[in-house]
């Protein structure tokens, strides 16, 4: 474990990312303490610039505190990012494992099915799904999961294909271990590192997707999210730049943090790759 941490820490960017991520998570967790009451409450005069009226980041067109919106928005963004990634992983790993382990017609069928999803532009599909199922946090999570699982399937399948014929797997088969047990206890743990790296990047993409949907007015109207903040501030940007800039910054930093952490994880989990990369 300490070796893992040391390798992770060797990537300075990853450390910065991790610190940022911890800050964002902290902000989400402590939002109710930092800003008691609802982020939708009209706390002050509308269009107050940052710093005035006791509002650190100013107020929006209804006098709502932008800082409170960003803190509560972190909850939504992180929940959507984490849950939709978990769902996408569940679908992607299951399908990829079956395809890679069984091969043959099952592999063909699953890969054609995956390609079918990959040919549809993911954001368009997400908009369509949310619009059909009416915007709510659940429909947004489902939509994001549905459009993000195909890459997972492909990565997992590739890992399984290469691990499938290794000696330890053959040994397990000879010993009479059941296929499900082999997949779960022998192959999957060895395929985990690319999945973890992928998951961190997917969370970043999911946060961006949620923000884009909210920006377009397809967010959950009862959840304060960063995309909503930018969307509602966009039209008054010449009047109140702070309404769009600060939530934009929040999205930027969070997504950047996740990407940095993902890179750090990749380095830490694949030390040989890292060395090879450094040699070039």
């Amino acid at each position: 474990m300490s070796a893992f941490l040391r390798r992770f820490a060797r990537n300075r960017g990853a450390v910065v990312g991790a610190v940022l991520l911890v800050l964002v998570i902290g902000m989400a967790l402590f939002a109710p303490l930092l800003f008691p009451g609802s982020p939708w409450d009209m706390a002050g005069a509308p269009f107050q610039p940052p710093g005035e009226d006791g509002m650190l980041l100013g107020t929006d067109s209804l006098g709502r505190d932008v800082a409170a919106g960003i803190a509560y928005g972190a909850q939504v963004s992180l929940i959507v990012g984490a849950v939709s990634t978990a769902v996408a992983l569940l679908i992607g790993v299951a399908l990829g494992a079956v395809a890679g382990y069984l091969g043959g017609w099952a592999d063909d069928a699953i890969m054609r099915f995956t390609e079918f999803f990959q040919t549809i532009p993911s954001f368009v599909l997400a908009i369509l799904l949310v619009a059909i199922f009416t915007p709510s946090i659940a429909s947004i999570i489902v939509a994001i999961a549905v459009v993000s699982w195909p890459p997972v399937t492909r990565v997992v399948r590739a890992e399984f294909l290469s691990l499938r014929n290794r000696e330890f797997v053959q040994a397990a088969e000879v010993l009479g271990k059941r296929p499900l047990a082999i997949v779960l206890t022998d192959i999957l743990p060895n395929a985990l590192s690319p999945i973890i790296v992928l998951a961190s990047l997917m969370t970043a993409t999911a946060i961006l997707l949620e923000s884009s949907l909210s920006f377009l007015g397809l967010g959950d109207p009862n959840m304060m999210s960063w995309g909503f903040l930018i969307g509602s501030g966009r039209s008054v940007i010449r009047l109140a730049w702070w309404m769009s800039v600060f939530p934009g910054l929040a999205i930027f930093l969070t997504v950047l943090a996740l990407n940095l952490v993902g890179e750090g994880l990749s380095d830490a989990l694949n030390p040989r790759l890292r060395k090879r990369g450094a040699a070039h």
Binding site: S38, W40, D41, M42, S61, L62, G217, P221, N222, S232, S235
Partner: peptide, 12 residues
Amino acid sequence: EIWNRMSEYFRQ
């Protein structure tokens, strides 16, 4: 926009 803002105002 204005309809969204009016709805948000109504809720609060």
